[in-house]
């Protein structure tokens, strides 16, 4: 068995860094692969516009990669920072930070591939609107990065948190749970936001006149899709900043870990579902602009109802933290 605390901390930070960069790179790669596949398709449709399409793909990829670069920064910090702490809690915090950023980058990486791909396809269909299409794609994929930014904030706070003399026994679970909560909940919101942005690019290529309404609907839909990741952030902050009384029982630790897992996984489904709703609404705003108000209202109600399972997960998490 390892008895040396420094070794365990090193192991935890290396493991966290590996998860972080591995998952972050996979997410960005899937997104870029989607964009590249769509670009191939559109170049084969319209070979004479290949220059424009490749330019669009380049710019889209550069922005879509941001989530992966966040993961890289966190991984480098985890590997090269010399943790002089002799507290075992540091190991939990560093591992939690790696998990948080790794999972948080997947959703945004995959998600921001959709607007890039749809924009490439749209360029082959409607060459005259290339400027508007690219602007819309960039706004969409920049908003997609929000869950990844949330995860980066949480993992930086976990890395640089002043552990002090907090009791080890339940706090390790709280720190690990804080990482899982924000990181995993960000997957759904990132993918949902990406679906919405992709639909908006497709819509603008179909009917460029409706640019204003489509962009507004997209932004509102993406903002509401971010709600599950905001819930995840809320649970993380509570787990990080509440001081838990020392107790050596297993159940106290498992309650805190369970709170993080519950909110994290509970956020995936509603995030994707909200994205699907916004996707449908954005697509049809461009086809039937007269019904835009009706569509926005239905989208908001539908998204609100499909969020309710995320809210149940948040309630269970809060019960696990505060009541049990």
């Amino acid at each position: 068995m390892f008895t040396d605390v420094a070794t365990i901390i090193k192991l935890a930070s290396f493991g966290g860094a590996g998860i972080c960069i591995g998952l972050g790179a996979i997410g960005a790669a899937v997104g870029e692969g989607y964009t590249a596949g769509m670009a191939n398709l559109s170049i084969s449709h319209k070979p004479e516009r290949s220059g424009d399409i490749m330019k669009n793909m380049l710019v889209g990829q550069a922005v879509a990669e941001s989530a992966g670069i966040f993961a890289l920064v966190i991984a480098i910090v985890l590997i090269f920072m010399d943790a002089s702490s002799t507290n075992l809690l540091t190991a939990a915090a560093l591992f939690g930070a790696g998990i948080c950023m790794g999972f948080g980058a997947i959703g945004s990486g995959i998600g921001s591939g959709y607007p890039g791909g749809e924009a490439c396809l749209g360029l082959s269909r409607q060459p005259s609107v290339s400027n508007r299409l690219m602007t819309n794609m960039l706004i969409g994929s920049a908003v997609c990065q929000t869950p990844a930014i949330f995860s980066m904030v949480v993992s930086l706070m976990l890395i640089f948190k002043n552990i002090g003399d907090l009791p080890l026994a339940p706090t390790w679970a709280a720190l690990l749970g804080a990482g899982i909560s924000t990181g995993v909940a960000a997957i759904g919101s990132g993918m949902g936001g990406g679906m919405t942005a992709g639909a908006s690019c497709e819509s603008i290529a179909r009917n460029p006149e409706t640019l204003g309404r489509v962009t507004t609907t997209m932004l509102v839909g993406q903002a509401v899709s971010q709600t599950p990741s905001i819930f995840g952030l809320l649970v993380s902050f509570i787990l990080m900043f509440k001081t838990f009384p020392e107790s050596s029982t297993l159940s106290a630790a498992m309650a805190l870990l369970g709170a993080g897992i519950c909110m994290g996984f509970g956020g995936i489904g509603p995030g994707i579902g909200n994205g699907m709703t916004a996707q449908g609404a954005v697509k049809w705003v461009s086809r039937n602009i007269e019904a835009a108000g009706e569509l926005m209202r239905t989208m908001l109600v539908g998204q609100a109802v499909s969020q309710s399972t995320a809210i149940y997960a948040m309630v269970i998490s809060l019960v696990l933290v505060f009541v049990v």
Binding site: A28, A29, E32, G33, Y34, G37
Partner: peptide, 9 residues
């Protein structure tokens, strides 16, 4: 394309 993207990333 994704596999190639992973290598390039």
């Amino acid at each position: 394309a994704s596999a190639f993207a992973l290598v390039s990333i």
